[in-house]
Simulated scan of single mutants.
Amino acid sequence: MVRSPASRYVIWLSILVALMLQIMPMPLWADVLRPDWVILVLGYWTLALPERVNVGVAFFTGLVLDILLGTVLGIHALALSVVVFSLAANYQRLRNYSVWQQAALVGLLAALYHLVVFWLQHLLTDIYFIIDYLWPVVTTMLFWPWSFLILRKLRRQFRVR
């Protein structure tokens, strides 16, 4: 099969779209429910192509997310690196799970992500835990099947390898 010229940009464009969705302004009631778009996209690409999307890509994406959100540099980078490392270390096993089992696992990894971000922000600043911090875990889990299907269709359509 011949790769299309656009295939080398699909991964980076999807990460860029995820970053834009992550910082897009929303009403306060919807902002609490915002899924972790970056985790969804990086998670898919790590499971699909672990040799192309790895901890380095997650760290770079996390640094960009830190800059966009105005947080202390390195918080999201470390948290995304931990999540992507967990996925990359077990990708062969996780590929065999059904989409719903993967959604539950992505939910656990999103909870780990939020735990690491909260823990680092609590150490560096002086914030306290609010239960609303966990709503994105639920919505990330619910959005996994759709993001999985959309990104798989893009990967097959553009023959990304």
Rank of each mutant, 00 (worst) to 15 (best):
V57I: 10
W119F: 11
V41S: 00
L63Y: 01
V55M: 05
G56P: 06
S86F: 04
V99N: 12
Y44D: 03
N96D: 08
Y97N: 10
L87P: 01
L120D: 03
L108N: 12
V83R: 12
V55T: 15
L123P: 15
A88K: 04
L94H: 06
N90V: 07
A58I: 02
L47M: 11
T71W: 11
A110P: 09
L65F: 10
Y44N: 06
A111D: 07
T61N: 07
A111L: 13
L68F: 10
G43P: 05
S81D: 09
Q121D: 15
S98W: 00
L68Y: 06
L94W: 01
V57T: 13
Q101A: 01
L109D: 04
L112M: 13
L49K: 06
Y113K: 06
N90Q: 07
T125R: 15
T71D: 13
L108Q: 05
A111S: 04
L112E: 09
A104I: 15
F59K: 14
Q121R: 15
Q121E: 15
A77R: 08
R93I: 10
F60C: 07
V41F: 02
V64S: 04
P50E: 02
A104V: 05
G74T: 02
V117I: 08
V82T: 09
L47Q: 05
Q121G: 12
G62E: 06
Y113C: 06
N96T: 15
V41P: 01
Y91R: 00
Q121K: 12
R52Y: 04
Q92V: 04
L78N: 00
H122D: 13
L40I: 09
L73I: 13
A77W: 03
A88W: 03
E51H: 15
L124E: 06
G56N: 03
I39S: 01
I127E: 03
G56D: 06
L42F: 01
L42D: 14
Y113L: 02
T46N: 03
T71E: 14
L94N: 13
R93M: 05
Y91E: 02
Y97P: 02
N90C: 04
L115V: 13
N96L: 12
L108A: 13
T61C: 01
L123A: 13
F118W: 09
V53C: 00
T125M: 09
L123S: 07
V41D: 00
A48I: 01
G62N: 14
N96S: 14
S81M: 09
S86H: 03
L80N: 11
I127P: 09
A89L: 12
V99A: 05
A79F: 00
G56A: 07
L108H: 14
L120C: 06
V72E: 14
V72A: 14
G70Y: 09
P50W: 00
N54F: 00
A89Y: 12
V82F: 15
L63C: 02
A110H: 08
A48Y: 00
L63S: 08
I67K: 08
Y113G: 02
Q102M: 05
L69C: 00
L49F: 10
L73T: 10
A111T: 10
L68R: 06
L108W: 10
T71V: 13
Y91T: 01
A104R: 04
